[in-house]
Simulated assay, not measured.
Amino acid sequence: MSQAATEAALTSGKDGQFIHFDKVSKRFGDNVVLDDLSFAVGAGERVTLIGPSGSGKTTILRMLMTLMKPDTGTVRVGDDYLFHEERNGSLVDASEAHIRKVRQRITMVFQSFNLFPNMRVLRNVTEAPVHVLGLSKEEAEERALGLLAMVGLDHKIDSYPSQLSGGQQQRVAIARALAMRPDVLLLDEVTSALDPELAAGVLDVLRDVAKTTDVTMLCVTHAMKFARDISHRVLMFCEGKIIEAAPPEQMFDSPDHERTRSFLQSVLDEA
């Protein structure tokens, strides 16, 4: 792929530039995690981030969740900057109120489920819509019941997380994320803690989400078949940079970069 084609693949989106990283850098001491990174994701687009551990993929998700701030550069979601505000024609550090407002548009499903252990399944899903979005208990429960039915767990609404399998807990986590009606859904190695059979069930649920919603998705995964199935684009990360960006058929069948080829071969050998 030519440099021009790679740059086009980095900025192409299903509907404009909904998420936009512009010259973002992040370092921890001498370790450069993101290196002057620029890319965009369109509204409703599903993008998978692949690459070796430590290449910057999860840092992207953590920034969008405002769990980590960039050292330099800007992150924009829709018309709003995430860590900055425009005042009198200049960009200044954002207030906590501004950050909370933008962050409400984004939810994340983590590797480790992160359910509230003292709450039953139904309340795990309704808690944030009630306390963050201001829904009534009745509205939140109606929404939650529909989502729990979608992930096949409407019969478990009175169970505690400890009474569920890992796969069931992750499906509750997906329902909880979707209950916020997010514009952006982030998926961070959501099956890495599950055995293959449970992982397959969770990935099937996410395939259904991809098919039946227009939520923008950023996914970090080593499940390459899943990435091929759900992605509009795949971005290959290495040492804090995107070294290749392409539709899944091209990325997985005929990657251009030698580093991409060696990474995909190693992942397939482990599968």
Rank of each mutant, 00 (worst) to 15 (best):
D229T: 00
Q104N: 14
T58Y: 12
V77N: 12
M224G: 00
L203P: 08
A173Y: 11
R27T: 02
S95V: 11
V172I: 15
E142D: 15
H98N: 07
F83A: 07
L153V: 02
R123C: 06
K14S: 04
L148Y: 10
K26W: 06
H222T: 00
E249V: 00
V77A: 12
S159D: 06
A199Q: 14
G44A: 04
P182R: 13
V205A: 04
P161A: 03
D22E: 11
R259S: 03
L61I: 13
V121F: 08
P247D: 09
E85A: 08
L64F: 11
D154S: 15
E189P: 14
L203I: 08
D229M: 00
P248N: 04
R233N: 03
S266I: 02
C219Y: 00
L153Y: 09
V190K: 10
D158M: 09
M217F: 02
A144P: 10
D188K: 04
V32L: 15
P52A: 10
S136D: 11
K26T: 01
I243K: 09
I243L: 13
R27N: 09
E138K: 14
M150F: 15
D154A: 12
M119W: 11
V172W: 03
L187E: 14
Y160N: 00
G166Y: 07
I230V: 15
K26Q: 01
T48F: 00
D154V: 02
H222N: 00
L145Q: 14
I99C: 03
Y81E: 12
D253E: 12
V202C: 06
T58N: 09
A94F: 07
V184E: 11
H98A: 07
R46I: 03
D15T: 04
E127I: 07
D79S: 14
E96S: 10
A149I: 03
V32W: 10
T66L: 08
I60R: 07
I230P: 00
H20M: 03
G73V: 10
V184S: 11
K23C: 06
E249R: 09
A5C: 02
T74E: 11
K137R: 15
L178V: 10
G51W: 10
M150R: 15
S12E: 13
M180L: 15
M224A: 02
